[in-house]
């Protein structure tokens, strides 16, 4: 029981931290983000709707904004870096908002061609 309470508290603290970080994030404009996703070349590896490819992983469902910006500035693996001079925090928020706005894909089981 005690362990369970601790887990709930820890989860709550973690959520608060993420929420604070998200509160600090600039407000994103999905429409502007859509244009930036193309203009900044994100689409070239991840596809126009972030579906991913052999060259870059799928971006949806999108990760939390702080992690998103961290990946943008100091990427893991061989993704090229996007410094603030190239993509500002506001622009990053717009791109993030665009990815958040994308509709959920269909259930693979509901797609005839994938059966």
């Amino acid at each position: 029981m005690f362990t369970r309470i601790l887990t709930i508290v820890a989860a709550g603290l973690l959520w608060a931290g993420v929420a604070a970080a998200q509160t600090d994030a600039p407000r994103g404009d999905a429409q502007a983000g859509r244009q930036l996703f193309q203009a900044k070349g994100c689409y070239s590896c991840h596809g126009f709707v972030g579906q991913g490819s052999r060259e870059g992983p799928r971006l949806t469902p999108v990760i939390a904004f702080p992690a998103f910006v961290a990946q943008l500035r100091t990427p893991r693996a061989i993704m090229p870096p996007y410094e603030a001079a190239l993509v500002s925090d506001k622009q990053a928020a717009d791109i993030h908002a665009y990815l958040e706005s994308l509709p959920k894909p269909p259930d693979p089981k509901s797609v005839r061609l994938l059966q």
Partner: peptide
Amino acid sequence: EQARADAVYGWDASPISVA
């Protein structure tokens, strides 16, 4: 199954997805 799960992203997009 993983390939199918990946393929549905962008399934109805235009331009058309390679999957």
